[in-house]
Design a protein around this nucleic acid. Structure first.
Lengths: 342, 342
DNA sequence: CTGTTAGCGCTTTCAT
DNA sequence: ATGAAAGCGCTAACAG
């Protein structure tokens, strides 16, 4: 039940607490010798700095808040790795929060982060997030924030994104080039820009290759595995045989793969599947799976870098800067094998 | 750049800041009417409570620190879900930290949590953790902590664990009962008790069924997928044909499955595999995979419950309490199908 | 029910 | 190089 403060150290050493404070924070204006006495005594008594007091006084926490829909999604946990690595290098630590895809929790979290005076925020918005009052409240209080991956309709943010339109286009084009003519799209919540844009990319590729777009080929999902399973089930019900699927998210792709496996449907022999995902997770699902690779790590560290420059710019006005990263299509099977199908 | 404090509110309303404080923290000893005026003014000016000041004063944060090796491991992210749910219900929030399997980072994290005066800590130790000075420092400062899943050799902790010995025994027995005679064990770092105990369970089951234990059938791993792949490769090199594998961790099982798939080795027809894992992740790897199920969610919420009771007991001495949860064997294929092999 | 007062533990001028 | 003093924003006795 050790509650040693700098005053205790000061008293023991017959000096003032301000000197102790200076010594412990590495000020140069303390005699080397006193410094040593102080650190020795601190260790002896098991002194433990109180960051609450320190941060309160300094009005700076060196903490950045990270809010993601759920950490169990591979994309987000790898993004967090990128964030932490970058942040720690600059002496910042990170607090991780999950919105669990609800706006309510997301708002609560922002309130908490605000109350705890974090120096900045990185956020990937929830499925439900359609109003941005909580982001505005960050702005109002001069807390810089960067939206990564899942961004908002409004423009007045700093963003770090993947080029989802291109990702959707490339995925669809890949399927077409490998002989698919009847390509279904597993979409995502349409209030999230990323899913909107992937859908647009899908449409654009179809148009480019003169394949008529069919509304009924777009199957929604609320980012649950069961949606992927349901979607996969629906494929058999179409008049024409579906030969390709472009999934806008890994979760739906996982669900679909489970269903395919159970039914003995082979990928990509019976049906070609390209999913937005991550190289490593898609390899787990099926080594044969083609992927539009999203490097969570890269997007995380890029977003952190951008945030840190904003934090360092200080109280001056925050500029809105958007960085768009290129998606990378990873085609697992040789197109030889696939093109036999056409 | 809003820096409204309770004093600002008080001044505006011509009352004292202590009344504002009471009103805002829901004290009953404030007139309903003033309460309303205060909350109205707070909203009007965009007042945002400063938890640093509040927590400093109260010497209580209502925060519990969670430290895990890595959040990307499915077990840990689901444990965190259980922790958060339980903690939020009691008005606690949670800060999540990753040791990335190093003792150094783990120690730093504990230091940080201490400096930030968390009310308690939940920890699953890193692969490297063999000395427990950092846990002792929690004890010294009267911060209750509960070790979950990955526990330590020392006894003087509160733990929430899975019965790993039984898990190892059941997994191995399952393989034996289904006709396997040459069972390899993918082990884990032996300074972690959980892997030691799973190995012991494996040995005990062999002995029970009079199958000789062979040292060379125990293949280590450092919890990387590549270890699983390497281990799977080694199976062909044994004199006798390996017909069963008990993997002590999901990561190695995933690696092995990848290798098996690539080589066209079927599970469980060609080789039976039981892995310590989680129902949902193993279903992704292969719906046919048998699993010793570890419910991260359950272990997380149980650990949180235990921690919260300790926190509430206050400054009195901390009792060492250990809760052991039962593992659950989930056999995916009917044993019919498997037993044909014997 | 409300005001007064005194800190929580630290940092930071300003002196010396 | 060190000390004195003030205060970050809040809460919690204690009065009244």
């Amino acid at each position: 039940m050790n509650k040693i403060t700098i005053h205790d150290l000061a008293r023991e050493l017959g000096i003032d607490s301000s000197t102790v404070s200076r010594a412990l924070s590495g000020s140069s204006r303390v005699a080397q010798k006193t410094k040593e006495r102080i650190t020795a005594k601190a260790k002896e008594l098991g002194y433990q700095k109180n960051d609450l007091a320190s941060n309160l006084r300094k009005n700076k926490t060196n903490v950045i808040g990270v809010v993601v829909p759920r950490i169990s999604r591979h994309f987000f946990s790898s993004a967090i790795s990128g964030i932490e690595e970058r942040a720690y290098k600059e002496g910042y630590s990170v607090v991780i929060c999950q919105s669990l895809e609800t706006l309510e929790k997301e708002e609560k979290i922002i309130g908490n982060l605000l109350a705890n005076r974090v120096d900045g925020v990185l956020i990937s918005v929830s499925m439900e997030t359609e109003n941005y009052a909580h982001l505005q409240s960050l702005k109002d209080r001069g807390i810089p924030y960067v939206v990564f991956d899942r961004h908002c309709e409004i423009e007045e943010n700093s963003n770090v994104l993947i080029d989802d339109f291109k990702g959707g286009f490339d995925a669809t084009e890949h399927l077409i080039k490998n002989g698919c003519q009847n390509i279904v799209h597993f979409s995502g919540p349409q209030n999230l820009m990323i899913y909107k844009n992937r859908l647009l990319g899908y449409k654009a590729a179809l148009q480019e290759y003169k394949i008529p777009f069919k509304e009924e080929y777009v199957l929604g999902s609320s980012l649950m595995e069961k949606d992927g399973i349901e979607n996969a089930k629906k494929l058999a019900a179409f008049d024409t045989t579906i030969d390709g699927v472009f999934s806008s998210n890994d979760v739906a792709a996982i669900g679909a793969m489970k269903y395919f496996k159970k039914k003995g449907i082979r990928v990509p022999e019976d049906i070609a599947l390209v999913g937005f995902s991550n190289e490593s997770i898609s390899a787990v699902i099926d080594p044969a799976l083609s992927t539009v690779n999203q490097s969570g790590f890269e997007i995380g560290s890029t977003a952190t870098e951008l945030l840190l420059t904003q934090i360092k710019r200080g109280e001056v006005l925050i500029q809105h800067e958007t960085i768009v990263l290129a998606p990378e299509l990873i085609a697992r099977k040789s197109s030889d094998r696939l093109s036999k199908r056409s």
